[in-house]
Simulated scan of single mutants.
Amino acid sequence: MLRTPVYASLALSLLFASSSLAARSYVDGHLHYVDFFQESEGMPALLSAMDKGKVSRAVIMGIPVAKIWQEDEPQKPRYYAGDDAALYWYSATDFELMHAIQALPAKDQQRFIPFLSGINATDKNAAAHLRRALELNPGFWQGIGEVFTRHDDVTALMHGDTPRANSEAMMKVYRVAAEFDLPVLVHSNVTSKRERKPLYLEELEEALQKNPDVKFIWAHAGTSKELHRHQEELDFLRPLLTRLLADYDNLTIDLSWTLLEPYLLDEQGTPRPRWMKLLEDNPQRFVLGSDVVGRFDNLGNILNGFEPVLQALPKSVAQAIAHDNFLALLPKASAEQETSTAKPSEE
C-alpha cells in the first residue's frame, strides 16, 4: 500500500525519535542502592537495569535512615509510610554500599559515582563522621547526600529534632564538603503538605548564601510525592527557580521524577513552553535522576520518561542535562578524568 505524505512524515518523525532515544546515554544523578529497610536487589540487577536503560553512569547512594518493624505490627511494612512506626538514622548504609561497589570488577566499579549519605543531619558530630569516612577511603567518595532535611512524612517519623538545611550541624557538613570539593545533594522540602507558599525556603537559601563554595544539588527542587498528593502543582515553583538560579551560582536542580509531572509536562504529556525556556536559559544547571530505592526494574522507564522534554530542547542542552552536567559537579580530579575518558552520546 502506498503511503500518503502525511503518513510518510509521521513515520519519519517516529523513526527519528526512536533513533534519538536509542542513541542517548544517561547519567543517573540520584539512585539509592538500598530501600528504607536497607535492602537491595543487588548489583547484578542494578547493572542489568542500567544496561537496558542506557544509563552509562549512576550517582549511587544509600539511605541515611531505616524503618522500624514495630513490635505490635503483624506485617513488615513495605515502605516508610506503610505504618506509623518510626525511622532512625542509620550510618552503616555507606559501608554496605562501599562493599557492594568494591566487590565488582574494575570496569563495573567505574560506572558508579558513590555519595556518602549515612549521617544524622541534626547531629553536630556529623561533619566529623564524614571527615573520617573521607580520610579512611581517599578518592572513593565523590559527593555527599542525599541528605534528608525537611522531608514531609520522613521528618514526621524521625526520632529527634527536625533536620534543617541551615542548621548548625549542616553548616559544619558544608564546610567539609567545600574542603574536599564535594557536591551536596540535599532534600529540603520547599513547603508543607498544606501551605501553598515557600514556607521553608529560608532554610535552603541561608545555606546557599553562607556557603558559596559548595556545589548544592536541590533534590526534586523541594517537591515530593507526598506534597503532590495534597497539592497537585506548586504555582510558585517555576518563578522561584528562575530567581534562585539567577541569585546563586552554586545551585543545581535535580529533575528527579516528581518534577516531570505536573511541571515539565502537561496532562497530555506535552512539554510546557515556560519550563522549556527555563531549561534553555540555564542549560548547565539541571540534572536528571531516577530516585529508585533498592529496586531497579523501573530505572530505564523513569529516565526514558524525560525524552519528550529532552527532544523539545536543543541537542546541546539535552546532552548537558541528560549526561554532562552531573559529571561537571564532581571533584576536580574526578571531573578531569571523566573529561578524558567519557564518550559523548550521539543524537
Rank of each mutant, 00 (worst) to 15 (best):
K315N: 09
P64S: 12
S188I: 04
D94A: 08
E73H: 04
P271Q: 06
P183Y: 15
P273D: 10
P74K: 10
R285Q: 08
L46V: 07
Q319D: 13
N304S: 05
K124I: 14
A126L: 06
A127K: 01
L97C: 04
E135P: 00
L327R: 09
H187K: 03
L14M: 14
K332T: 13
E336F: 02
P308N: 06
H220Q: 04
D153H: 04
L255Y: 01
I63S: 03
A333P: 01
A92I: 05
P198Q: 08
I253V: 14
D83K: 07
V6I: 14
E280K: 14
A178T: 06
G29S: 10
D28W: 10
L46K: 02
G139T: 08
E146A: 09
F180P: 03
R196K: 13
E205W: 03
P271V: 02
S18A: 12
L104H: 08
F37Y: 11
L130T: 00
A328N: 06
H129A: 15
F326K: 06
K124F: 11
S188M: 05
T93G: 08
Y88C: 02
Q284S: 14
I217R: 08
M43N: 11
D152E: 15
A85P: 03
I113V: 13
L299F: 12
T122Y: 00
M1H: 11
R243W: 06
E261Y: 12
L201D: 00
A121K: 01
D28S: 03
L303E: 14
R3A: 12
A322W: 01
V186D: 02
P163D: 13
S117D: 10
L279R: 03
F112Q: 09
L241A: 03
A86F: 11
V287C: 00
F236V: 05
D281K: 13
S334C: 05
A221F: 08
K54G: 06
A207C: 02
L227S: 01
G42S: 07
K193W: 02
P271N: 12
V184I: 00
G53E: 11
G118K: 11
K107L: 09
M170P: 07
L240K: 05
I60H: 04
M50V: 03
Y26R: 04
F112T: 05
A320D: 08
E233N: 11
F286V: 01
P198E: 12
V214Q: 07
L201T: 01
A177P: 10
K124V: 15
D281A: 08
Q110L: 12
K332C: 00
L313Y: 08
R131V: 02
R196D: 12
Y248E: 05
L157V: 00
N166Y: 03
D213I: 09
G289L: 11
S18K: 02
L255F: 02
V27H: 07
M1N: 11
N189W: 04
H159N: 10
F148C: 07
M171V: 07
N298K: 15
G82N: 03
E307H: 15
G300N: 04
V65K: 07
R175V: 05
L259H: 01
L264E: 07
K107V: 15
D152M: 12
A335M: 10
H323D: 03
A100W: 06
A246Q: 15
R243D: 04
I63V: 15
A322I: 00
E280T: 13
H220I: 00
Q102I: 01
N137K: 03
A81D: 14
L47T: 02
